[in-house]
Write a protein that binds this DNA or RNA. Structure first.
Lengths: 231, 231
DNA sequence: CCCACTTTGTGCGTGCTTTCACAAGCGCGT
DNA sequence: ACGCGCTTGTGAAAGCACGCACAAAGTGGG
């Protein structure tokens, strides 16, 4: 096999676009709350902090939902993006590791638009198990498989120390969870077909430090590389 | 003017590379703790979850620190990456918004390698101001400018509700902070020369939901798009 | 009905990222 | 001293992503 067939991408929305859709959605919901009926790509792009051509191209991947000379109908667009992101159905989330971060996550009520329901909290520490956090009983990690099955958990959140994360990930996968959000500072090893996203505090700080240093360093001329919003 | 002069990028490390250096650094530190002296690009790439060619090219931006036939000396590489990221100096961090998340951040001791020192906690709520969190007094937000000056804060972390975030960002910038890590679900508006990074819970969940739906949807054939680790 | 104005959707050039593939370099055993 | 095996560093190719600029398409006024 010389070259695999040039990647059909059968219904392909580029990953970069997918990463921005939630931002557009939030901006749109803000507009909706303010009673705005339609919005131009220029204005929406401004609110979302992106280039308007990029926004139009992103939206064009979902179909032609705008009206030339007018703009986009806010309500309709909210619906289309929600549908595309899969927010019209309910996702059941389990959080493992109820330390400071786990508690913060559990209490973080406004999970964007609804669509996400925190179904269970799990921890290994007997000190924590049995307590009530965000009106949920914290259950022992040994019940992970049962909880996943009984509550139909489809997204697992790992907020444990680094050492336990891989083990938890493995159990999630074994139990049939194929979407994992990982806050532990380790690279998770998972089989193909499992989607892992990582959120890492200290990595973000380190990237900021790099740019800050660069700014301070070569300051024969300032701000040569700056103001970059990053997703 | 047809084309701007082709972007000198005077000491340019690509952004994509910078974003991965912290991951390499962590993997290297794990190796170091285990007493490993040298490591091949293949092994390190494995530990960091990236392609080995990519890793080598990334490292080549820092200079030629490997030995052919052998690999990279762990300790030396740790030092080089740390230096490049600016972790050999101390960064003073202020956290604004001491809710669940702010507390979690304040208590998150292991900020990667040292290099980051939490210098101050600020909040607007009189109920919270004055309390001690992570052995720091929570001070009133009105002291932001003083704190930034007195403690030499160079990185600001915003963990407030969405509504307050822009205001806090403005004050940070005004006070001379030009690196901001934003946890609030809003797009911050800052002048050029200020570096904002955003961490957003619900966006991550929405992206997971998208891929999960895709997997469930078009399952005439499974897992056509999967296993993608994302930074 | 037509014209001026607005705004979308997209073709195209450019630059960045990733990946492959391999020559050059290094260490070790003989 | 020499050759063998291993591993780096990098040219070259392919794929993506971004943003400009413009044609196409719609609106509203006269």
């Amino acid at each position: 096999m010389i070259s695999r067939p040039p990647r059909p991408r059968e219904r392909g929305i580029p990953d970069a676009t997918v990463a921005r859709l939630p931002v557009y959605l939030r901006a749109l919901q803000a507009l909706q709350d303010r009673g705005t009926a339609t919005v131009s790509s220029e204005d929406l792009a401004g609110a979302a902090g992106v280039n308007s051509a990029k926004l139009r191209k992103d939206l064009s991947h979902l179909g032609s939902y705008g009206t030339r000379g007018v703009g986009y109908e806010v309500e309709y667009l909210v619906y289309q993006i929600s549908r595309e992101l899969g927010l019209t159905q309910d996702w059941s989330v389990a959080i493992v590791g109820i330390g400071n971060l786990g508690r913060a996550l559990a209490n973080y009520g406004g999970f964007g638009t609804r669509g996400f329901r925190i179904a269970a909290l799990l921890d290994a520490d007997p000190e924590v198990v049995g307590r009530t956090v965000a009106s949920l009983d914290v259950r022992h990690i040994d019940n992970l498989e049962d909880v996943v099955r009984d509550k139909g958990v489809s997204i697992g959140v790992i907020a444990t120390p680094a050492g336990s994360a891989q083990g938890v990930a493995g159990r999630f996968v074994e139990a049939g969870v194929s979407s994992i959000l990982n806050f532990a500072p380790v690279v998770l090893n998972v089989p193909d077909g499992v989607d892992v996203r990582k959120v890492d505090l200290s990595i973000e700080l380190q990237i900021l430090a790099f740019h800050a240093q660069r700014r301070a360093d070569g300051d024969g001329r300032g701000a040569e590389r700056a103001g970059l919003e990053v997703t």
